[in-house]
């Protein structure tokens, strides 16, 4: 069963990555990032059971905490940007370049 879980995790991760690369709405990009994090968590939990060790679950727990903090700050940034530029597109924020 471990293999199945891990492949599911990898698929979700890849889907999230493709979403990050193709979507332009910053919020959706953020959701895709969350999806990737969740995929990782699934792998952690799977391995925890595979090796009979609770530490994988602990790590997954910490990932959730960090993800929560990240979402809070990230969404605040998106709101701030939207407030000044009237846009939530990641492509519009491209002044930092050559």
């Amino acid at each position: 069963m471990t293999t199945h879980y891990l492949i599911l995790s990898g698929l979700l991760f890849a889907i999230g990555a493709i979403g990050v690369l193709t979507r332009r709405n910053a919020i959706v990009v953020f959701m895709c990032v969350e999806l990737m994090l969740n995929a990782c968590n699934l792998a952690f939990v799977t391995f925890a059971r595979q090796v009979g060790n609770l530490e994988g679950q602990i790590i997954a727990f910490f990932v959730m905490v960090v993800a929560a903090a990240e979402v809070v700050v990230g969404l605040a940034i998106i709101v701030t940007i939207f407030r000044t530029r009237r846009s939530a597109s990641v492509d519009d924020v491209n002044l930092l370049k050559y």
Binding site: Y5, N41, V45, A48, R49, Q57, A60, F61, M64
Partner: peptide
């Protein structure tokens, strides 16, 4: 799936 994988807390 977490719950199934003996991780009810998570």
């Amino acid at each position: 799936l977490y719950a199934v994988q003996e991780a009810p807390f998570l």
